[in-house]
Design a protein around this nucleic acid. Sequence first.
DNA 1: TTGAAAGCGCTAACAT
DNA 2: ATGTTAGCGCTTTCAA
Lengths: 327, 327
Amino acid sequence: MTVSRVLNNSGRVAPETRLRVEQVIRELGYVPNALATGLFKGRTRTIALIVSDISNPFFTVIVRGVEDLAQRNGYTVVVGNSDESVEKERQYVASLISKRIDGLLITPAGNGSRRILEALGRRGSPFVLIDRDVEGVTADSVTGDNVAGAKLLTQHLIELGHRRIGFINGRRELSTSRDRQRGFEMALRERGIELNPVLIGDNAHRRDEAYRVAHQLLELPPEERPTALIAGNNVLVIGVIEALRSAGLAVPEAMAVVCFDDLELASALDPFLTVVAQPVRSFGTIAAQFLLERLNGEADVQPRRVVLTPELVVRRSCGAGLGPLVI
Amino acid sequence: MTVSRVLNNSGRVAPETRLRVEQVIRELGYVPNALATGLFKGRTRTIALIVSDISNPFFTVIVRGVEDLAQRNGYTVVVGNSDESVEKERQYVASLISKRIDGLLITPAGNGSRRILEALGRRGSPFVLIDRDVEGVTADSVTGDNVAGAKLLTQHLIELGHRRIGFINGRRELSTSRDRQRGFEMALRERGIELNPVLIGDNAHRRDEAYRVAHQLLELPPEERPTALIAGNNVLVIGVIEALRSAGLAVPEAMAVVCFDDLELASALDPFLTVVAQPVRSFGTIAAQFLLERLNGEADVQPRRVVLTPELVVRRSCGAGLGPLVI
DNA sequence: TTGAAAGCGCTAACAT
DNA sequence: ATGTTAGCGCTTTCAA
């Protein structure tokens, strides 16, 4: 019909006819059926965002950024929670393919995501990795420099005089965890501090595991016990603080604690931790930007990998922990 | 084709044919086109969730609950951010209608949402209100008992000896704010405490406004100054705490602070506030349940309104504030 | 048990 | 400047 031309501003329509059509559209409350358009065009102007935990403030900020940019560009965002499960990711991606979503933004659950993403790529759907890399997958990605971030935190503690630094790290499966651990170890080595494997509690999946691991570190004999703790992310640090509290240790008076990621709201509360902050919102917006560019065919063929630089935010002296615990 | 019958388990298909079809489906990596199905059936197995701020942990928990339940029932969730703007809501709903989303869950931005929701209802799309009511709209809804919650907080403070209680409340436009203020005033009246309008700072939209309002209350002459503050929600309370900190007042030693809503992560930090906690996750899951029931035609015609009971969580004595500030 | 026809609402290409 | 045709991929109905 002529209606289509009016709605899309395509082709010539007599001004008078246009007005008449617009009038009727308003009267009828007519809304075009995007399913039919999508069916015909093969595009739905919908993108998907799969995060591993939507109730984690870190990912929340990403969601917000993505939603914002998508909305401004006329795209709708479908949000999925993978719960760090590759299986749930698979289900999601299947549903997205079925619904002919134009592209995907994802914080992959692990290296197992590789096959899923490859399958998606084979269908011609562009996707962008956020926060984490997947071994063997080459695609647009927006991540932080986790090696550098871990070095910043570690160096900070070392400069304050700490020598026995505990590290409570996240899932080994994640590139972020691996990189952070690498940065930690590098920083120690550069300063000539011997790495004590006992002080590394890695592969903590959740807050309660961080709690447990922190407790283990506290039970070390005094001469081995850490004077400072680095938590691998914003969730683990809560478990760490809870463990310290239950042990009657004040932060940072009795134990220095630093961590990755800044929580906007929590940063107003106590303890004001020294953290390595990442420009998280940019993770989302840049990734969305990349995806939209690909969808518009504006992007080069070769993948772009952006690594954003983290920043040390010193909120409170972490040197204090040295006192009571150093024998 | 016979393929459709195989995929939907409808009609008779020879076992042998079925196997052959399944084989080919696997070989081709065939995925049915949900757009075509939706176009024909008029249903998309997609629901939308519009919240006012997806980076607010309160709503985040709702998103999580909704996503969870939807996923388990084979539905996809489209998430939108209204930023407390009715205009953005309108745009979203238009896009959702166009995409033939089956139903909507919404934390409405205000009474202006009424027209939008009525229009949606006229199209036959079911929707469920979450957390907030809209004047003049009758629909399924899941909310908290905000009058009761405010009374709990106020009574708690009164019992601890506070008489001058400040109230920093959220947007007047929201039913939650109005109800909370009503509960606050009722509790005062019931205990025979005269209401001092000066102590009510209402209509704070954001954290910085709460900060400003709290500062105003602190600048009152000593004999009028509050000894305790109630913050209208989890975001405003941060502003309040920041204001107290900048004024050098410890919480709760120098000033009692209580608020609505419990933040899972922040609750592990200092100050451990006494709060009225709501079963927020249930807001999402119950609302989603209602919506899905309607979509399945299982629900009665008359709207169901669920009001969930809040609970006082006492984390730290709020009586302490009485000391220094009471002249 | 399987196939053929028609139509869901849209748009690109081709008439008129 | 407008209308007609055909087809995107599916499902329902009816026929074989």
